[in-house]
Computed example of a mutant assay.
Amino acid sequence: MKTVKFAIAALSLVTSVSFAQSISATAATIDDAEAQIAQQARQADASYKITEAFNGNQVHMTAELQK
């Protein structure tokens, strides 16, 4: 029985990990970077969660796609 529970837990983890994809964008403003992230998410037919944004000379933004 423990083996079955472990297998179910392992498959649940693999399933959720397999749908996550990291994407990034670079732009002059935060709004432009997020627009690029949103466009990439639409093309992948997925939602997104911004995981990082850095503002130096340009904005670099990273997000995770979720299906």
Rank of each mutant, 00 (worst) to 15 (best):
L13R: 07
Y48S: 02
A41I: 05
E34D: 03
A7M: 14
S16E: 04
S22I: 08
T15H: 08
N57T: 07
D31Q: 14
Q21S: 10
D32P: 00
I8P: 00
M61L: 15
L65F: 09
K5P: 00
T15S: 08
I50T: 11
A41S: 06
D32Y: 12
N57D: 06
L13C: 13
Q66R: 15
T3Q: 14
S18L: 12
T3P: 00
A53H: 06
A33L: 06
I23K: 03
F19R: 06
S22K: 13
V17D: 00
M1H: 10
A63F: 10
S24M: 03
F54C: 00
A35M: 05
S24G: 10
K67L: 09
T62Y: 03
E34N: 13
Q36K: 15
F19D: 00
A33C: 06
R42D: 05
K5R: 14
F54D: 01
F19K: 09
L65P: 02
A7Q: 13
A41R: 02
T3N: 09
V14N: 02
D31R: 14
V4E: 06
I37Q: 04
T15D: 02
I23S: 06
T26I: 14
N55H: 13
Y48M: 02
N55L: 07
V59A: 05
T15R: 12
Q43P: 00
F19P: 00
S22A: 08
S12H: 11
T62Q: 08
A38M: 06
I37M: 06
A44N: 09
V17H: 05
F54S: 10
S16D: 02
S16C: 12
D31M: 07
Q43A: 14
F54W: 01
S24N: 12
Y48A: 04
F54I: 13
Q66C: 03
A9C: 10
T29Y: 10
A46V: 01
A9K: 15
I50P: 02
L65I: 07
A53I: 14
A10C: 09
I37C: 07
V59Q: 02
A7Y: 13
A7L: 15
R42Y: 02
S22D: 01
M61E: 03
N55T: 09
D45A: 14
T62R: 10
S16A: 10
M1D: 03
G56K: 11
S47W: 07
V59S: 06
V14C: 11
S12M: 11
I37D: 01
K5F: 13
A27L: 10
E34G: 05
A27T: 07
D32A: 15
Q21E: 09
N57R: 10
Q43C: 01
F19Q: 10
N57K: 13
A33D: 01
A53F: 04
I8N: 06
D32Q: 14
